[in-house]
Design a protein around this nucleic acid. Structure first.
Lengths: 195, 195
DNA sequence: ACCCGCATGTAAGTCGTTACATGATTGG
DNA sequence: CCAATCATGTAACGACTTACATGCGGGT
């Protein structure tokens, strides 16, 4: 699913400028499971406009730069529905935090704590943010409520585990590298070889 | 964090071939928060070899193609530790499933059910898979246990919400497109315009 | 017969990120 | 005064995915 489809989706919810669309992926309902950058949104909107799937108007503002407000056309809605008829690609997740924390025994204790606390902080903030927006869901479509619930459950679960496991991760020592004076030779057993 | 660092990390756990490294990202402990393809792993291993961060041996096998088993060198371990000293980039998630389900009111009911059930199925399977591998964690490092717990909590939370919300998502009707005979004109209010 | 799993690798292409360019206004 | 927010856009670069190329053995 490319950025064009993403933009069309946001525009089915109402008119928006490129800048506002990006905000939807930063703070809005999509923040928890998708991202985009200006470098992909603006070209996507141009292409959509060329294809007649969206229209736009320049809206001058006082004290601010004018904005280009896009609206989806009937053809755009048809295109979006068509895209929605396909099966979604598998989810993609990449978490450098978890990768690092997996190797927590190789991290210097202060750095390990920094990484862990930043990760916990991020998830706490997001949980707070998502629960604050609770009221917005009142009149929303069931799909929107569902995604909201998934987001909340996700952040809750992550915060819970981190608060529970915190001590275990942080109290343990570090496997020192062997280039520093050490008593133990590099006798790391390669256990996976025997599979 | 590039694929080279990912490979180095896997190799700190023991020797492995490119094929086996990929399996680690498919079924192994990294499966839940990272992905890679052969097209990125093989070139990465070549480069690591050129840089002296890994060594390899050809291991002929009966009835199977020979495999190139890679092992990390002391220089490789130093490089990996150095990479681990940086702050991890923010997590990246992209879920077309959730994006689609957000717009569930625009999906044809059968398709909506298909998407929902496939998503639930995937998460159930992964939860089962991760809980099955429980025993593997016995002697593992705390970081490994932590990541395991995070994975389990994640899948559990997702399955719980989906089982709870299932009826709400599946029982509701579809917002028909307006190109089909309809009683209701396209009076979609663009509520976000007034911000 | 055919597909899947094992096994490695390359080449082309897509897609998106990062950085740059520009500029006004408000808040600390 | 500097940073941030609002606002749009381009260009270069890089990273990864997809598809291709090759080949054997076992299961259905």
């Amino acid at each position: 699913m490319d950025v064009k489809t993403l933009c069309l989706g946001v525009l089915t919810l109402g008119e928006a400028s490129g800048y506002e669309i990006k905000k939807q992926f930063e703070d809005g309902p999509f923040a928890h499971f998708h991202e985009t950058s200006f470098g992909s949104i603006y070209p996507a909107l141009s292409k959509l406009s060329d294809e007649g799937l969206v229209t736009w108007q320049d809206i001058p503002q006082e004290g601010r730069p004018a904005k280009k407000v896009y609206a989806i056309t009937p053809a755009g809605e048809r295109a979006f529905r068509a895209a929605m008829r396909k099966m979604p690609a598998p989810d993609k997740v990449r978490s450098e935090h978890l990768f690092m924390l997996f190797f927590s025994h190789l991290l210097e204790p202060e750095h390990r704590a920094r990484v862990f606390e930043s990760y916990l902080g991020i998830h706490r903030d997001r949980l707070a943010a998502i629960e604050e927006k609770n009221g917005d869901c009142a009149g929303a479509q069931p799909g929107q409520r569902f995604v909201y619930e998934m987001g909340r459950a996700f952040y809750r679960a992550m915060v819970e585990v981190m608060e529970r496991e915190r001590v275990l991760i942080l109290e343990d020592g570090e496997d020192r590298p062997s280039d520093r004076p050490s008593d133990r030779p590099s006798d790391r057993p390669s256990s996976r070889a025997a599979e």
